[in-house]
C-alpha cells in the first residue's frame, strides 16, 4: 500500500485526463494537493470531490501556466498553505497536429511555450521549494512522440523531446539535493487529445499497440503515483514509457 500521508503534491493540467486521474490517485494515497488548471469552476468541483472522498487538503490554482508571475504566485501560495512541496507533476500541455509545411511561427511559439518553457519554469520553482528540505520528486509528462517522433507531430515531438533533455539534465543537477526528476512518455491514452482524432486515425493508432487496447488515464496516473512515492526513491533521470508496447 502506497502512503503519501503528510506529503504535498502539485499537479498542473489537473482539470481533466491524466492530470485529473493523477490528482485522484495521489489523494487516495493520502497526499494533500495543489491543483492547477485554467478553469476555476472545474477545479472547484474536483476539489470538492477529493476533499469529500479522501479528506485531503486541496489548494486550487486557476492560471495560465505560460504566465510566469502567476506561476510564481502559485508556488508562493503552496509555500504559504503547506509549508513544503514533495512532488510536482508537470502535466499541462497542448497537442496540435500539423504537417511540417503547415507549421507557422505562432504555433511554434505557443507549443514550445506551453509544453516546454512553462514546464521548465515550474520545475525551477519546485526545485527552489524542495532544495531546503533536501527531498522531492518531479514528474514531467513527455510522450512517445518525444521519444520516437511521428508524422505530423514535428512540433509536439520537439516540445516533448525537450522535456526529456530537461528531465535528464535537471536530474543530474538536483540529485545531490535528494530531488528526483523523471519523465513519463505515454503512448495512446484515452484523453480529449486522443478522442478528437478521426475514426480512421484512431483505429490506426489502436492497431499499433501490442497490448491491443488504448491506454487509460489510470495507467499513467499509476506510474505518477509510483514516482511520487517511497517505492521509487532510487530512480532519477529516467524516461518511463507507458504505452502498452505501442510501435510508431
Amino acid at each position: 500500500m502506497i502512503s503519501l500521508k503528510g506529503k504535498c503534491i502539485f499537479v498542473t493540467g489537473a482539470s481533466r485526463g491524466i492530470g485529473r486521474q493523477a490528482a485522484i490517485m495521489l489523494a487516495a494515497a493520502g497526499a494533500d494537493l495543489a491543483l492547477a488548471a485554467r478553469d476555476q469552476e472545474v477545479l472547484t468541483s474536483l476539489q470538492q470531490h477529493i476533499e469529500a472522498t479522501y479528506g485531503s487538503h486541496v489548494l486550487t490554482l486557476a492560471y495560465d501556466i505560460q504566465d510566469e508571475q502567476a506561476t510564481k504566485e502559485a508556488f508562493r501560495q503552496i509555500k504559504k498553505q503547506f509549508g513544503r512541496l514533495d512532488g510536482l507533476v508537470n502535466n499541462a500541455g497542448i497537442l496540435e497536429s500539423r504537417l511540417l509545411g503547415m507549421i507557422d511561427d505562432s504555433s511554434i511559439q505557443q507549443t514550445l511555450s506551453v509544453n516546454l518553457a512553462a514546464s521548465i519554469i515550474h520545475l525551477q520553482y519546485a526545485a527552489r521549494l524542495m532544495k531546503p528540505q533536501r527531498s522531492g520528486s518531479i514528474v514531467n509528462l513527455s510522450s512517445i512522440m518525444g521519444t520516437h517522433g511521428s508524422e505530423g507531430q514535428v512540433l509536439y515531438s520537439a516540445s516533448k523531446a525537450g522535456i526529456i533533455g530537461a528531465t535528464r539534465s535537471a536530474s543530474k543537477e538536483l540529485a545531490s539535493y535528494g530531488i528526483r526528476v523523471n519523465a513519463i512518455a505515454p503512448g495512446f491514452i484515452r484523453t480529449d487529445l486522443a478522442t478528437g482524432l478521426s475514426e480512421e486515425k484512431y483505429n490506426e493508432r489502436l492497431d499499433s499497440i501490442k497490448m491491443g487496447r488504448i491506454g487509460e488515464p489510470e495507467d499513467v496516473a499509476g506510474t505518477i503515483l509510483f514516482l511520487c512515492s517511497e517505492l521509487s526513491t532510487y530512480i532519477t533521470g529516467q524516461i518511463i514509457g507507458v504505452d502498452g508496447g505501442m510501435v510508431i
Partner: peptide
Amino acid sequence: HMALVAQLDDQFDIMLDT
C-alpha cells in the same frame, strides 16, 4: 548562490524573480 537564494526566500518570506 542558489543556496543563498533559498536562504533569502526563507528568511524574508519572499520568492525572488529569476
